[in-house]
């Protein structure tokens, strides 16, 4: 089978190939794809290519160029040189929007440190509070309680399996679907939900193992879950932290799955939910 070396890929290109499930292999600084994957790779890269043979039999090196790149450049240069009333109107709006974005980002950045510190204190305090107000169980009881909880957790309908890694619970789900108010059921994909046992590192993080989609930000795990696995700020976070503090990991898992399936109404991040594929009828 012929194989093709694709040179000069940016890290974002590699991510795009991974997200679109293109199978490729590292080849020094470049990547190597087999013939059936080449067209798909070029489509993902939005590129056209020519190939030439290498010293190795059946291995070709391609030269590729993005198709839309020049068009986008032209459009951008036109936009900023356009002095017609229409052009000026667009520029005016763009400038105003940029200013608004800057202001709102500044505001968001200013509240984050307070949130982070208050969350850390809350996480620690709620566990102390819970333990202080619970009759002390014996070691055997504790062991049995948590072993039962683990069995209960992996028996949940939407949970495929669960592992424990250092001090985090890794929950693997079956394919999850989100109910999008505007476009119906969307297939999000299979998820890895990371729940830290002590509630640190955001307590719960969600990672899509099937696909990442460019939504409100690039490479989103779900319409309202960012690329680093953290979710948009939501009242649910307090509940999750409290439940983690109380060692209620089954409920945490159920709520974490529910959080993905029910998109918060009116959340601007969920505007892009229709970029996830619609649920296929079985």
């Amino acid at each position: 089978m012929k194989s093709f070396i694709i040179p000069n890929l940016e890290p974002s290109d590699r991510t795009a190939l991974i997200n679109q499930r293109v199978i490729f292999y590292p080849w020094g600084k470049d990547v190597l794809v087999e013939e059936p994957q080449l067209q798909r790779a070029l489509k993902v890269l939005d590129a056209k290519a020519t190939s030439e043979p290498t010293d190795i039999a059946e291995v070709f090196r391609i030269s590729w160029k993005r198709i839309t790149h020049q068009v986008e450049l032209d459009r951008a240069s036109n936009r900023y040189s356009d002095q017609s009333p229409r052009g000026k109107y667009v520029q005016r709006c763009d400038a105003r929007i940029a200013e608004l974005i800057r202001q709102s980002k500044e505001k968001l950045d200013s509240v984050l440190p307070v949130l982070i510190s208050s969350k850390a204190t809350f996480t620690k305090s709620s566990r102390l509070f819970f333990i202080a107000n619970t009759p002390e169980p014996s070691q055997d009881d504790l062991q049995k309680k948590f072993e039962d909880q683990f069995q209960q957790l992996i028996s949940l309908d939407k949970v495929r399996t669960a592992f424990v890694d250092c001090s985090a619970l890794l929950v693997y789900t079956h394919t999850l679907y989100a109910d999008c108010p505007s476009s119906g059921l969307r297939e999000l994909g299979e998820f890895l939900i990371v729940i830290t046992l002590d509630g640190t590192e955001d307590g719960v993080r969600w990672f899509n193992n099937t696909r990442l989609v460019n939504g409100a930000e690039p490479a989103m795990n779900a319409p309202h879950v960012f690329s680093d696995g953290t979710a948009c700020f939501d009242g649910l976070q307090q509940t999750l932290q409290e439940l983690i503090a109380q060692f209620e990991f089954v409920t945490v898992t159920e709520l974490a799955i529910q959080f993905l399936e029910i998109l918060p109404a009116g959340n601007p991040l969920c505007r892009f939910a229709d970029r996830w594929p619609p649920k296929q009828p079985h």
């Binding site: 929007i97 608004l100 974005i101 709102s104 980002k105 505001k107 968001l108 200013s110 509240v111 984050l112 307070v114 949130l115 208050s118 969350k119 409100a216 948009c232 700020f233 939501d234 009242g235 976070q237 307090q238 959340n267 601007p268 991040l269 505007r271 892009f272």
Partner: peptide, 17 residues
């Protein structure tokens, strides 16, 4: 602090999008 952060984040993405 969670309510303020949620409101600021919502406003940011409203404008950004």
């Amino acid at each position: 602090s969670l309510i303020s952060a949620a409101s600021a984040q919502s406003e940011y993405y409203q404008v950004k999008n």
